[in-house]
């Protein structure tokens, strides 16, 4: 028998999606998705609205269930097993378009909730760690406020810090800046850039192409439920192979 650590090391990519398909009733939302993400890789996913970007990354932490194909995260396959699913979710942080902070808890309580109940961290320790992450996202002074008292940009930074408190190996972002006013987008992107430079494995759905150029190791373009193209950003922006990518880029860059 090989132990888990060896298996992980041997398995190479930290996320593997192979032949993943998903349907909503008749509607084929994910068509034969194949995607591998190495540890430390930063992937930016883009594509027109309704192309299945959210659905794809939500399959990675099982907020959505795929019906065909395999998804293996950090050596753990996502199957219908609650233990396995929880194990995967502990390794993955997720940031949502609408922040989804818990409005009945202070910022600090938002941050310490999961460490205390999932990782069994004593409160004091969890709070110290939480304060350190709040420093990193540059809002330690907001620790005792409630989410409703913060601006959108501050809320999103709290949401990022909340995920980081679980010390995830992978971070998923689903359009983290598209619900923000323009002047707040930068403060969130700055935090994400810093995170990327720290070596975090990231998959980020975004249309912030400046951000993509700065941090992405690879760009993924989706359309109609398929991955049309995956390429390093220089290649992706300079000479996209597919006509659909060209069209999309021409629309979004002008």
């Amino acid at each position: 028998m090989i132990n888990l650590a060896e298996r992980r090391a041997a398995s190479g990519p930290v996320i593997q999606m192979a032949g993943v398909n998903k349907w909503y009733g008749e509607f084929h939302v994910l068509k034969n998705i194949n995607l591998e993400v190495r540890s430390g890789e930063r992937v930016v996913v883009c594509g027109p609205s309704g192309s299945g970007k959210s659905t794809m990354i939500r399959c990675i932490n099982r907020l959505e269930e795929h019906q065909k194909g395999r998804i293996v995260v950090d050596g753990i396959e996502l199957i219908a097993d609650l233990k396995q699913i929880d194990a995967v979710r502990r390794e993955i942080g997720m940031v949502f378009q609408h922040f989804n902070l818990f409005p009945h808890m202070t910022v600090l309580e938002n941050l310490t909730l999961a460490p205390m109940w999932v990782r069994n961290t004593p409160r004091k320790e969890a709070e110290d760690a939480a304060m350190a992450y709040l420093e990193r996202v540059k809002i330690p002074e907001q620790a005792h406020k409630f989410p409703g008292q913060l601006s959108g940009g501050q809320q999103q930074r709290v949401a990022i810090a909340r995920s980081l408190c679980m010390k995830p190996k992978i971070m998923l972002f689903d359009e983290p800046t598209s619900a923000l006013d323009p002047e707040m987008i930068k403060e969130v992107l700055d935090v994400m850039i810093e995170l990327a430079q720290g070596g975090m494995t990231m998959i980020c759905v975004t249309h912030e192409m400046g951000f993509a150029r700065t941090v992405a190791d690879s760009m993924v373009f989706m359309d109609g439920g398929e991955i049309v193209e995956k390429a390093p950003p220089t290649e992706f922006f300079k000479n996209p192979k597919s006509e659909r990518t060209k069209l999309f880029l021409s629309q979004i860059l002008h």
């Binding site: 929880d86 993955i92 609408h98 989804n100 818990f102 909730l113």
Partner: peptide, 14 residues
């Protein structure tokens, strides 16, 4: 909102 459940689940809470 559904987002509350999703956020909590994605943190690994049972």
């Amino acid at each position: 909102s559904r987002g509350q459940t999703e956020a909590a689940l994605s943190l690994g809470l049972r």
